[in-house]
Design a binder for these strands. Structure first.
Length: 271
DNA sequence: GCCGTCACCTGTGGGC
DNA sequence: TGCCCACAGGTGACGG
């Protein structure tokens, strides 16, 4: 579900609500969400305050007085900040209770999301953040040559390469289709055939698409929400993903699978 | 190190 | 109505 714009929207919503609150208890109902030993995770977080929330790619980083816990929403993860006891359902798997009578509920229908605690010195030096590539929103000076050098080493499709979070992070299935459409590049083209100028174009369009999607609080196709009953509005700007007709040449769009992912593109406009 | 496949889960919608 | 199957916005483990 959530790609970079949706995660950034969640970060902003939570930053307006939970900073400086002390976590006094954690209720872990589905242990597989937590990658650590549960007691280790809880002992390192309980009695600490959330000082800030950062984002790298699709990861949320909840910085505490000391250390941080990192959260990935994967397909369906959502956070709700509500009064303690005001919500309950079988899809809520982790609950952080604060000292003000409110709680942060982590809900995840498919249970794919993950959380892990890190000491301060290992947050960016260990997995998972160690392997995360360039964040196109956080990095104001983008090294196009570096990205090009990594892309042309790959022999898979350009779409597959752009979904690889270790090169450019933050793109998911929806925005990759949009970026490639704006860049006029067929998603099936092999990475090692992509020219330097096309990489520049892809990166610039990535920044453009993601920035505008953040402005509109993400894309809601099915289930995404940044908090209870708050939905993204970028879907009105989608050109190809889930669409049937090309908005430029008006020919029917193609839909097929690349690496098992639904892929929408125009065979006339994307070459 | 790269690549393809599968697994992780549940809900939804279409076909029969 | 009920059953079965494919599919859904992500990522990591594993074997070749």
């Amino acid at each position: 579900m959530p790609e970079l714009p949706e995660v950034e929207t969640v970060r902003r919503v939570l930053s307006n609500n939970i900073l400086n609150l002390k976590i006094i208890d954690i209720d872990v109902r589905y242990p597989n969400i937590i990658e650590d030993d549960i007691d280790y995770f809880k002992n390192n977080i309980i009695n600490k305050r959330i000082k800030s929330i950062d984002r790298l790619g699709k990861f949320l980083i909840f910085n505490l007085d000391d250390g941080a816990f990192i959260s990935h929403l994967r397909m369906e993860g959502k956070y709700y900040y509500l009064e303690k006891g005001s919500i309950d359902n079988k899809h809520i798997h982790v609950v952080f209770h604060f000292d003000n009578g409110y709680s942060l509920y982590y809900q995840d229908v498919r249970k794919f999301g993950r959380m892990i605690y890190k000491n301060s010195d290992e947050i960016y030096e260990t997995k998972p953040l160690k392997d995360v590539g360039i964040d196109p929103i956080l990095n104001k000076k983008i090294d196009y040559r570096n990205i090009y050098d990594k892309i042309v080493l790959r022999s898979v499709s350009i779409k597959t390469t752009l979904l690889d979070q270790s090169i450019i992070c933050g793109l998911g299935n929806i925005y990759v289709d949009e970026v490639l459409f704006l860049s006029k590049i067929n998603p099936h083209r092999l990475s090692h055939d992509i020219k330097y100028d096309e990489v520049v174009n892809i990166v610039d369009n990535t920044v453009k698409v993601l920035s505008k999607a953040i402005e509109y609080k993400g894309t809601t196709i099915k289930s995404y929400t940044s908090s209870l009953n708050v939905y993204g509005e970028y879907q009105q700007f989608l050109n190809v993903h889930t669409k049937t007709i090309c908005p430029v040449c008006h020919s029917p769009l193609l839909k097929d699978k690349i690496n098992g992912r639904s892929t929408y593109y125009c065979k006339n406009c994307e070459v």
